[in-house]
Computed example of a mutant assay.
Amino acid sequence: MYIIFKFNIRKQSVRATQTAGIPKERVEEISPTEWYDKWWAANLATDPVGASRKPPVLRSPNGAMKDFGGFWAVGKPTYDPAAIRAPTMLVVGEWDALTPPAMAQEIFKRLSGVKQRRLVLLSEGSHSIGTEKNRMHLIREIQNFLEEPTQ
């Protein structure tokens, strides 16, 4: 399969996106720059082409953005939550500016075919909570959900 990389994202742009929603005075506490720099370096290590650009960029396949622009942004979802039958957990950070809690609540309401469903709102977390101070809250919630017996 051939992937077209349409989005070339620079370090500062990604940082702004990752910290969107976090109160400005708490960004360094919640998402330390040192951690971000390590995350950035690890991502660049997976893509020598993006890393060799001046300045280096993270390249992103355009499929997800194409779906967003062509479907989600115009009110045509690519799936129907009511058609989902598997146990489902939605997790969102309270400061998620990209997919805010209200979006998760709306999807949760539409999971009408799921017997075992859960909506988890994590305090002091953004869309990038997996790389933030409170990431262990996310990891524990996921682990607990996966270890529960299905009904």
Results as ranks from 00 to 15, higher is better:
Gly21Gln: 04
Gly21Phe: 04
Gly21Thr: 04
Gly21Arg: 04
Ile22Arg: 01
Ile22Glu: 01
Lys24Glu: 09
Lys24Leu: 12
Lys24Thr: 05
Arg26Thr: 01
Arg26Ala: 01
Arg26Ser: 03
Val27Pro: 01
Val27Leu: 04
Glu29Phe: 07
Ser31Arg: 07
Ser31His: 11
Ser31Cys: 09
Pro32Cys: 12
Pro32Thr: 10
Thr33Cys: 00
Glu34Lys: 15
Glu34Met: 08
Glu34Ala: 15
Trp35Lys: 06
Trp35Thr: 06
Tyr36Phe: 15
Asp37Ile: 00
Asp37Glu: 15
Lys38Pro: 01
Trp40Arg: 07
Trp40Val: 06
Trp40Phe: 08
Ala42Gln: 12
Ala42Glu: 14
Ala42His: 09
Leu44Gln: 05
Leu44Phe: 10
Ala45Leu: 05
Thr46Lys: 14
Thr46His: 04
Thr46Ala: 09
Asp47Met: 14
Pro48Tyr: 06
Pro48Thr: 09
Pro48Asn: 08
Pro48Ile: 05
Val49Ala: 09
Val49Pro: 05
Gly50Gln: 10
Gly50Ser: 08
Ala51Gly: 09
Ala51Tyr: 09
Ala51Asn: 13
Ser52Glu: 05
Arg53Lys: 15
Arg53Asp: 13
Arg53Tyr: 15
Lys54Ile: 14
Lys54Val: 15
Pro55Asp: 02
Pro55Ile: 05
Pro56Trp: 06
Pro56Met: 07
Val57Tyr: 05
Val57His: 07
Leu58Glu: 11
Leu58Cys: 11
Ser60Val: 13
Pro61Phe: 04
Asn62Cys: 06
Asn62Thr: 03
Asn62Pro: 00
Gly63Glu: 05
Gly63Cys: 00
Ala64Gln: 13
Ala64Tyr: 15
Met65Ile: 13
Lys66Gln: 11
Asp67Ile: 12
Asp67Arg: 12
Phe68Glu: 01
Phe68Ile: 09
Phe68Thr: 01
Gly70His: 03
Phe71Tyr: 14
Trp72Glu: 15
Ala73Leu: 15
Ala73Asn: 15
Ala73Gln: 15
Val74Thr: 13
Gly75Ser: 09
Pro77Cys: 08
Pro77Thr: 12
Pro77Trp: 07
Pro77Leu: 08
Pro77Val: 11
Thr78Gln: 12
Tyr79Val: 13
Tyr79Gln: 09
Tyr79His: 15
Asp80Leu: 08
Asp80Cys: 04
Asp80Ser: 13
Pro81Ile: 10
Ala82Trp: 00
Ala82Ser: 14
Ala82Asp: 02
Ala83Trp: 03
Ala83Val: 01
Ala83Pro: 02
Arg85Ser: 11
Arg85Gly: 00
Arg85Phe: 01
Pro87Tyr: 12
Pro87Ile: 12
Met89Asp: 02
Met89His: 02
Leu90Val: 03
Leu90Glu: 02
Gly93Met: 02
Glu94Ile: 01
Glu94Arg: 06
Glu94Asp: 08
Trp95Glu: 10
Asp96Ile: 03
Asp96His: 06
Leu98His: 12
Thr99Ala: 12
Thr99Gln: 07
Thr99Cys: 10
Pro100Ser: 14
Pro100Arg: 14
Pro101Phe: 08
Pro101Lys: 08
Pro101Met: 07
Pro101Ile: 08
Ala102Asn: 11
Ala102Gln: 11
Ala102Cys: 03
Met103Pro: 00
Met103Asn: 09
